[in-house]
């Protein structure tokens, strides 16, 4: 036990030193949130978040390395130093701001329902219906506080919520507009469509960083401005969405 502790302490001080010299920026993302960040069959990360992160790194002239992390451990992993920034479509909320700092928003989002095309759906009549959400997202807290009569089922990833919607285990899925858009316009989501207007709007998505890491926040904000100005952002945007996702 003592040896193990010593070894752990030693590795800790080594990483401490290594971090001071190393310029590689470690970026945490989920890899289960298409088309923003997901894994291909060859194990590669792809998606809007991933490409934006790469563009930002190019802009900041730093080497970047991606770390995949499950959603529910994302903020603890950032705090524990497993990576330096979260680029995973994370909404800026007051609860999260108590734990981490955020960069300026890099896109704007709204919460929208999807449900099977042939199903009648009324966002205001959710009592007794089941709503699928991803655990630990703003959709989960929104659904739980606004649809008290509904059976809100929380899944570890967005993909599982959709799989159950398709199977008919749940009546609808509430999630970010962009991610739902990606799904219903793919062959996988052919069963379903948007239902009703967005139930919440203007939710801003930022890059989470450790509290007090103002230097990194400054660099990220500069880089976001730069890729907005030089057309890189628009290029990536066009590749994934036919509309402007930046908002504002």
């Amino acid at each position: 036990m003592r040896k193990l502790l010593l070894a752990l302490l030693a590795s800790a001080s080594l990483t401490g030193l290594a971090q001071a010299q190393d310029t590689t920026l470690k970026i945490g993302t989920e890899g289960a949130y298409p088309p923003f960040n997901n894994l291909t069959a060859s194990g590669q990360l792809e998606g809007f978040d991933v490409e934006i992160a790469r563009a930002l790194c190019d802009e900041m002239k730093t080497k970047c390395e991606f770390v995949t992390q499950d959603w529910d451990g994302m903020i603890p992993a950032l705090q524990a130093g497993k990576f330096d920034a979260i680029v995973a479509s994370m909404s800026i909320t007051p609860e999260r701001q108590q734990q981490v700092d955020f960069s300026d928003p890099y896109y704007v989002n709204s919460l929208t329902f999807v449900a099977p095309k042939d199903a009648a759906f009324d966002a205001k009549a959710q009592d007794g219906k089941s709503i699928g959400v991803q655990q630990g997202t703003i959709a989960a807290s929104f659904a739980e506080s606004n649809y008290k009569g509904a059976d809100v089922k929380a899944y570890p990833t967005q993909l599982e919520a959709w799989a159950d919607l398709e199977n008919g285990r749940i009546d609808s899925v509430l999630a970010d507009f962009g991610v739902q858009y990606g799904w219903i316009s793919s062959p996988d989501g052919a069963c379903c469509e948007f239902k009703g207007d967005p139930v919440s709007r203007d939710d801003k998505i930022g890059i989470a960083i450790r509290k007090g890491d103002t230097a990194l926040a400054g660099r990220l904000n500069e880089a976001i401005k730069a890729i907005r100005a030089n057309g890189k952002y628009a290029e990536i945007n066009k590749k994934y969405f036919p509309f402007d996702i930046f908002g504002q």
């Binding site: 529910d72 603890p76 609860e95 734990q99 655990q135 630990g136 989960a140 807290s141 929380a154 570890p156």
Partner: peptide, 20 residues
């Protein structure tokens, strides 16, 4: 808890994902 049943562990994970 991993397949959406809110047992004791499910409630715990929900509480943790909210409050950290």
């Amino acid at each position: 808890a991993i397949i959406t049943v809110y047992d004791l562990m499910g409630e715990t994970r929900r509480a943790y994902s909210r409050s950290f």
